[in-house]
Design a protein around this nucleic acid. Structure first.
Length: 426
RNA sequence: GUGGAUGUAGCUCAGUUGGUUAGAGCACUAGAUUGUGGAUCUAGGGGUCGGGGGUUCGAGUCCCCUCUUCCACCCCA
């Protein structure tokens, strides 16, 4: 029976693995440049852990199962709950601030479509224990530092920034009752994804005051934090939240990434989990789903039974990123699969034993080394050396017996030289 | 979960109103080439035409079901 790969999964043959490593290695390097330390958790957790934050409807969207001990478990669809659990467990001994990153493999039981699969990798960076908005800014900066390192520019991607805190304060300011906020957030989040009329219609279902709707529409179109005060009279909470967000943009400017960023009140983010600054990074054209998203979540640790500790972070998936990089020509299919230091070619079967000894010696010296199992023609072995991406090819031939010498050939230049076997690798 | 499109070799695709033994390019393997790689030439392997059922003397081709992949919706942590 022929077994197929499972819906929404990918097989990473060496060329695909090279692409994955290219992306993941970049993520790790950027994390380290920005002072983050790596962590990881288990790939499955108690199902209950994901229900705490997202409710029962989440169960249908993740892979869950019961183990032989009757435990209800789920393959992780995100790593933030695991992070919260891990930090809570050792909150009293961990030095703060906690700046951690991870590149977990995640699974979600959703229907696959462009930029979304059932199994993927997601880069996460989080800062726990810093209340200052500088931490939020650092998370944004770190994401941009990575994207810039790939060759993307502020013409290719845009960071859309808003604040949950500001949004809540402004809505209350224009007479929206507190208990309406939760229903309004998902609607506002749709602003840029649906036609204007449909958006207004959805607002009308929830809000009676036409004045309030007009104000919301004006707010949604603003592109600068400085214009907010001109649309709404600010109460103390709104003023404070606005000052905080202005501070975010000031820091971004200091760090030299202000031209990548803009204020956009339609960035709300799905769940009620965020408490402060929120952001998404999109392709400039706006044709793909978000490359990256994140924000401040000050209540999550306490929601998971820990003390009240502030946190901010972001996640970036590999699927949309790969599509964008290909579109921009920053990812080619001929990415080098793997390099090899030495390939040993054996000129004549009678030299094979010496060749085998040499291979072991090279590997012991810490170099990568490969060879052909068949002592066919030398030309054939050179072909293999080439296919293996070898930097150098060592030919073991008559010279070894005649004068104890090896032929070392540089595969890139084609130059070759005779080297004393005793001095080789010394 | 809903809707639309799709499926022929590892990949990209031909395949006439239904008609003999289903083809090409690339890739792969071997040879030309037992002391020199990327090129060239020659040969070869590789297919239950996604799977199952039906119509027909006869199905890659027509019909039904199912699966996959892609796209959109729902959702997006």
């Amino acid at each position: 029976m022929k077994i197929k790969s499972v819906k929404g999964t990918r097989d990473f043959y060496p060329p695909e693995m090279a692409v994955r490593n290219f992306i993941v290695d970049g993520w790790k390097a950027a994390s380290i440049r920005n002072g983050f330390v790596e962590y990881d958790g288990p790939i499955f957790e108690y199902l209950k852990m994901y229900q705490v934050k997202s409710g029962d409807e989440i169960v249908e969207q993740l892979f869950n199962f019961e183990d032989r001990g009757g435990r209800h478990l789920a393959i992780r669809p995100e790593i933030t709950p695991t992070l919260a659990r891990m930090v809570n467990q050792q909150i009293n001994t961990l030095p703060r601030p906690i700046k951690w990153f991870s590149v977990p493999r995640l699974c979600r039981a959703e229907r696959p479509q462009k930029g979304r699969l059932r199994e993927f990798f997601q880069w996460n960076v989080d800062i726990i224990g810093v209340e200052d908005v500088l931490a939020d800014v650092e998370v944004v900066y770190c994401s941009l530092d990575y994207l810039r390192s790939l060759g993307l520019t502020s013409k290719d991607v845009v960071v859309k920034i808003s604040s949950r805190r500001l949004l809540a304060a402004l809505l209350k300011n224009i007479g929206i009752p507190e208990n309406k906020l939760e229903t309004l957030y998902p609607i506002l989040d749709k602003k840029s994804k649906i036609p204007q009329e449909a958006f207004v219609e959805m607002l009308q279902k929830e809000i009676d005051s036409t004045g309030a709707i007009e104000t919301i529409l004006k707010l949604m179109d603003l592109h600068s934090v400085d214009d907010v005060a001109g649309v709404v009279n600010l109460n103390d909470e709104a003023t404070e939240a606005l000052d905080e967000l202005k501070q975010v943009f000031t820091h971004l400017d200091r760090m030299g990434v202000a031209d990548w960023c803009r204020f956009d009140m339609s960035i709300v983010r799905g769940l009620a989990y965020y408490t402060g600054m929120v952001f998404e990074i999109h392709d400039a054209v706006g044709e793909l789903r978000a490359i990256c998203g994140g924000g401040r979540y000050d209540n999550l640790l306490s929601d998971f039974g820990g003390p009240k500790v502030t946190a901010t972070g972001m996640g970036m998936g590999d699927c949309v990123l790969e599509i964008l990089l290909r579109e921009k020509g920053l990812l080619t299919d001929d990415l080098p699969v793997q390099k090899l230091d030495y390939f040993i070619a054996c000129a004549g079967a009678e030299m094979f034993d010496e060749a085998v000894a040499l291979i072991a010696k090279i590997r012991q010296a810490g170099f990568s080394c490969n060879f052909s199992y068949k002592t066919g023609s030398l030309g054939k072995q050179m072909k293999q050396a080439n296919a293996a991406n070898a930097a150098k090819c060592v030919i073991v031939g008559g010279e070894l017996k005649e004068s104890n010498q090896l032929v070392v050939k540089d595969m890139a230049s084609g130059d070759q030289e005779l080297v004393d076997a005793a001095a080789f690798l010394k």
